[in-house]
Nucleic acid binder design. Sequence first.
DNA 1: CGATCAATTGAGACAAATCAACACCAGTGG
DNA 2: CCACTGGTGTTGATTTGTCTCAATTGATCG
Lengths: 199, 199
Amino acid sequence: MHIQSNFRGTALAGMPPAGVTFHAADTMIYAQGDAAGTLYQVEFGTIRICRMTADGRRQITGFLTAGDVFGFEAGAEHNSSAESVDGAGIRLLRPASPAETTTALLQSLARTQHLLMLLGCRSANVRMGTFILDLSERQADGRLVHLAMQRNDIADYLGMTFETVSRALRHLKDEGLIRLNSITEIEILNRPALEALCE
Amino acid sequence: MHIQSNFRGTALAGMPPAGVTFHAADTMIYAQGDAAGTLYQVEFGTIRICRMTADGRRQITGFLTAGDVFGFEAGAEHNSSAESVDGAGIRLLRPASPAETTTALLQSLARTQHLLMLLGCRSANVRMGTFILDLSERQADGRLVHLAMQRNDIADYLGMTFETVSRALRHLKDEGLIRLNSITEIEILNRPALEALCE
DNA sequence: CGATCAATTGAGACAAATCAACACCAGTGG
DNA sequence: CCACTGGTGTTGATTTGTCTCAATTGATCG
């Protein structure tokens, strides 16, 4: 499981630094409605920020990885929940300086707007392709992309069903743009074409 | 035209306060790619924030009205453009305090996330209904909603075509939830039912 | 090995996009 | 005063893409 491997990878190299708490896969860090105020930073692993719609659907508004700061809210309560996707280490930030807060907020805003653009575009294939490219940018390797989250999470992030996620992946595969090395690893075979598709 | 009436309404009451510039309907305040840095505040009228997608579509990421602050960017350049919808007065903000910036940013983030939730939901009728309710909250009257923007703008905001906007309005009308008093004025006939639809 | 959950694939239904025609309104000029 | 025009909005017919429902395969784990 990725939980183990991810955690072990860090733990074996030495204990996680003090102030970092570990959250197992699929566990909640804070819930919708919890008191807000604290800021968090991802140390390792992947976090998803979720929000339930009134009709019962779930919208994931972001996936966060090492270095990302999260937890700000406009009100006194969290209107999103934060959950560990694959086992993650979280650091509590001591009250950050205003400048740091602004930077983190701007980044958060930029990410949200980026997702907004993605959802505004209606093609499932393009959404999926862009998602892969986005992940790729945040990961070291230019060809291999690791999917820490499962299809269901991707679906709720991209605003579609997990069946459509599956079909979109198949489509990109059939086009020769990617290869599915395993269920959690995608290989980008033709990046220029993929970028052209997603612009 | 709304330009005249809006402007006149303010102008007759006295000249716009110093530091407020007027932008006629459908004119640009800043463009995608312009140098960022200044913050603006809407004095009167309506502003739309737009972003072009590579495939030529336009996504409106927000409509701003009196009091709203806009213009922040993560980088040195604007990656959105700001345009006057119906003739609007804009005030340049002198460098705001960090606390004010954070507040404005949080509000901006909250709004963007709200729109994100809307786009994640796929029903055109619900999107349209929510849009009307959102507008209503920002306007004085609880029943009458003024549409400063035209159908095309609404479509690009809600991620659908203007034909679908038209059909969604018709649907809400047929359901007895709203009435179309004129092309720019909607009357909410059954707010509870409308809220129930949109949750 | 069977049990369970995740992922894929297929067939059909349905909502929105697309294409096209038409109505409406304001402004213009004969 | 009335045709003409261009922009905007509505409505209709058809196509297309995604959702839904259902069956099947694949992976993981006790």
